[in-house]
């Protein structure tokens, strides 16, 4: 059992969220096109609803805690539940690590393209989530990236980010076609 009950904390955060959301709804501009019920009506209602519900959650939890202060601890963790307890900071750190790997992918894939991005992702996650020998990881990442590329780009025909390669390629070909030396060579060949 943690010092502050997690439901009470969540309830308080939600109350703040509800107020912020309501204020956001209040600042939605008025429009002559909105008809009888305005664009802000449902959002405002939702804000109030969330406020009430989170207040109920807080009160409910406080009451329940008073009723059975000692039994509450048992309720905390179900045996067959995978989700970590709130106080398990080590596990949150692992989750954060995986999240950062994902952010890294988003940055990489836009700059160096899909294949390298996927290879990085596969290698990074494998190493982070248990690891393997260097050769296995490299093999898995490379083969995996090729597999993903074949599946998504070739078979399913989906466009994936290409990174800076096409631009580079374009510049290379541009430079070549301008260069007189090059034109001369290609003309003779």
């Amino acid at each position: 059992m943690t010092f502050v009950n997690k439901d009470i904390a969540a309830g308080i955060v939600l109350v703040i969220l509800a107020v912020a959301y309501w204020l956001g709804a209040d600042s939605i501009p008025k429009s002559l096109l909105e008809g009888g019920v305005g664009a802000e009506a449902l959002p405002k209602m939702l804000g109030i609803l969330l406020l009430i519900l989170s207040a109920v959650l807080v009160l409910q939890t406080i009451l329940a805690r008073r009723q059975k202060a000692e039994a509450a601890a048992v309720e905390e963790d179900d045996a067959d539940d995978d989700a970590p307890a709130v106080s398990n900071y080590h596990k949150h750190a692992r989750a954060l690590g995986l999240l950062l790997i994902g952010i890294g992918y988003i940055i990489l894939v836009e700059t160096v393209g899909y294949i390298i991005g996927v290879a990085y992702l596969l290698a990074a996650v494998t190493l982070f989530a248990g690891g393997a020998s260097r050769r296995t990881v490299i093999l898995f990442a490379v083969l995996g990236a090729v597999f993903f590329w074949v599946l998504f780009v070739e078979i399913l025909g989906i466009h994936q980010p290409q990174g800076f390669w096409p631009k580079l390629w374009h510049q290379v070909t541009q430079a070549q076609s301008i260069s007189p030396a090059y034109s001369a060579t290609s003309a003779t060949l």
């Binding site: 992918y105 393997a132 898995f140």
Partner: peptide, 26 residues
Amino acid sequence: KRYRLAIIYALVFSGVYSIDNSAFDL
């Protein structure tokens, strides 16, 4: 697990990108 997680992560990213070709979606 390590391979499974890696493959699922890559699948999610690849699939999501296909919806709107937008990195913002990721």
